[in-house]
Design a protein around this nucleic acid. Structure first.
Lengths: 221, 221
DNA sequence: TAACTATTCAATTAATCAATTGAATAGTTT
DNA sequence: AAACTATTCAATTGATTAATTGAATAGTTA
């Protein structure tokens, strides 16, 4: 193989190496929802500060994340939506071929995946018809940094209290961080128990955004 | 993070680890075109037989390739089109963010990328109008195992001799193994020098196929 | 059955990766 | 300027990966 082609494969291998660590995948998952500081990421993941910083350097050197300064804080963010697409491809390959993944998903989402999830295309159509209430069940910080237009934010810790506020005559669609996030499952299950027509969106917000669909940072009020 | 989610990330990380080696990426590139034996792959890549086998075990354990027996030969093949999509995502991320990749591509494809490449969608449309001749410039073995319907096979070693055979009144589109493959560049350049309207397809055959577009194994005659 | 072809496995060595600990750096606050 | 907050870096240790070499395994052929 030509020297140049070999070097191109080495570059691709470097990126794959950067995401070959479960810890770095988790960091990317959190950064897909919102930009965050090293300290915050350390707390979310349970990694030491030094180790969190080390992993972020690896991601930065391979151009998967960028960093901006805010006072003495460094805020990390994804380098682009293509990084979301890369992780999505990785997840789809794992789900398609690895029995262990299927097994884990079955134990993780017991009975839950049978909640009539709807696709992003379906939601786009329903939204245009005005027949749906969209609920973002991620933490408020993530909601504020970007969400589906007109979505209402009900963070996980407020689920029990605030689901009663919703207009029961409309169909409700809840979405979350991504396919492995349980918050939207919990919300839909609770709503269905109250007799409300509710569904969960298949994708998380990052996948919705990476597909070029409309997003906003405007508050709902 | 919950134990199950952590295990899911570990599984994704295992797949990323499997493609974090330039040698395994090269093996996957060859397997994207056609199923091949260990011996053939060893010759194509220059790796020792034992090392080739070792790398294939890693790919197989992470469900990126499958193997079938043909006499005493083991023929390896890609596990699915999603593997092609994964490598495509990897390549796009690298091309988008890594300056080194841009630099390598510039030196590798000097002046060549300015050959008015056309997209798969454009080719689909032109094919339906019957106004185009499609040329597959991969080796015959790869052509035989799958190609775009009606495509003519002109392997790299026959380019100089057989380009004269083509109907000069039609537009010619050449495609190859993928974006890093030079054969289609060479073909288009040679044809344009003869005054023929020729383009190269942006994607390689594996990307075309992975997108669900029509393919066949039928010979052209 | 022996010889051959094709491939995998095990042991070894060298290189690389991951986490910890302590030191160093940089911006902000008092 | 000192103290504080936030973050990165270097050295060290242990674990993992990659390639080679030789042995072992499996199917086919004579």
């Amino acid at each position: 193989m030509s020297s140049v082609k070999k070097q191109l494969f080495e570059q691709l291998a470097n990126i794959a190496q950067a995401i070959s660590s479960p810890q770095r995948l988790e960091l990317l998952d959190y950064l897909a929802q919102a930009e965050r500081s090293v300290e915050e990421l350390s707390q979310l993941t349970g990694l030491s500060l030094a180790n969190t910083s080390r992993h972020l350097q690896v991601l930065k050197q391979n151009a998967l994340v960028e960093v901006r300064k805010d006072g003495n804080k460094r805020l990390y963010l994804l380098a682009g939506n293509d990084v979301v697409n890369l992780i999505t491809s990785l997840r789809k390959t794992a789900e398609t071929h690895l029995a262990q993944v299927e097994f884990l998903l079955d134990s993780y989402l017991t009975q839950k995946d049978k909640l009539d999830p709807i696709s992003a295309d379906q939601l786009m159509e329903m939204s245009q018809n005005g027949e749906v209430i969209v609920v973002d069940v991620r933490p408020e910080k993530e909601y504020r940094q970007g969400h589906i237009p007109h979505a209402i934010n009900i963070p996980p810790e407020d689920l029990d209290r605030r689901l009663n506020e919703l207009d029961n005559s409309k169909t409700i669609v809840a979405y979350c961080r991504g396919p492995y996030c349980l918050f939207s499952y919990d919300a839909v299950e609770a709503l269905q128990k109250k007799g409300v027509t509710a569904h969960r969106l298949v994708d998380g917000f990052p996948e919705w955004k990476a597909a070029g669909r409309p997003t906003t940072e405007k508050s709902q009020s």
